[in-house]
Amino acid sequence: MHNFELAKAYTTTQARDLLAEKPNSILKAGGIDVIDHLKQHLIAPNRLVDIKSVSGLDDIDVDRDGNLRIGALVTLARVAADEDIKKDFPALAQACGEAASPQIRNVATIGGNLLQRPRCWYYRLESYKCIKKGGDTCFAIAGMNRYNVIFGGGPAYPPHPSSAAVPLVAYGASLVLEGPEGTRTVPAGEFFVLPDVDPERENTLGEGEILTEIRVPAAAGKKSAYAEVRERAGFDWPVVSAAVAVEEDGGSVKSARIVLGQVATIPWRATKAEEALVGQPLGAASAEAAGQAAVDGAEPMTDNGYKVDLVTALVRRVVASLA
């Protein structure tokens, strides 16, 4: 493993200064993805700036109106176990509780989870200089692509890895980012970007910016659920996941958000499925229609056509569970 300096910050200002002070410095929260990149020789930073001791970034707070704020350093285990989140934002609790393994969830932060890099094996292997690493091709196109995307691909085709991002986009969350120019708040649905914008990145985090907080608007009155499909029942990456959040009015759906994970280069809003639900009562018929509409525009690769059927079935199942 490449050797580096390890700096520890206690405030976000210190962290930003420590980053700016030394070229090729990167942030580290739980470190799960950073250490993986170091071990795979994908990065060679001069300095890791550890933000785990920065105060004020590890609270979960629900205000009187039911709006939720989660500090970027809160671990996945804490999100999954939080009583308020379990009650009002069950899809988020579930996604975080099923991500990775108990040992990883005790260390991985929700901020790092949103900002982790893709898991496509060509990206993760040093020997493949793929388009995500400045090369000129995505090896998944002609290679082994059973875990790659059916939506939003081109010129790179890796699925967005974050389990937490899927329900967060469904709940209309926003991210608070603190940078050299000040603090900005970005809707999670706009933060993640397609590879045709820039194949080397998955989001719009700016140079020197720190994700400090995730804000989720009150979900009182919303019905929501999350489910994923894995090859193993136990700990494994999902091959498809789905989060659904709906508001009802007089027995039919007033608004709906349906977000798919592991099938697109970003957390993928199935807008046609959302439209299929609006105005309909929740039930077997609307669940079926949403499932069918969810795969609108799917472009499977050579080995991942099975994901199309899984999306249909999973969306149907999650919507039906809300009826």
Binding site: E5, A7, Q14
Partner: peptide, 17 residues
């Protein structure tokens, strides 16, 4: 590491390695 830390109770950053 010249850092603009305000309060006396704020810890100074550390660098090892």
């Amino acid at each position: 590491t010249v850092v603009g830390v305000g309060g006396a109770c704020t810890k100074e950053p550390t660098v090892i390695g």
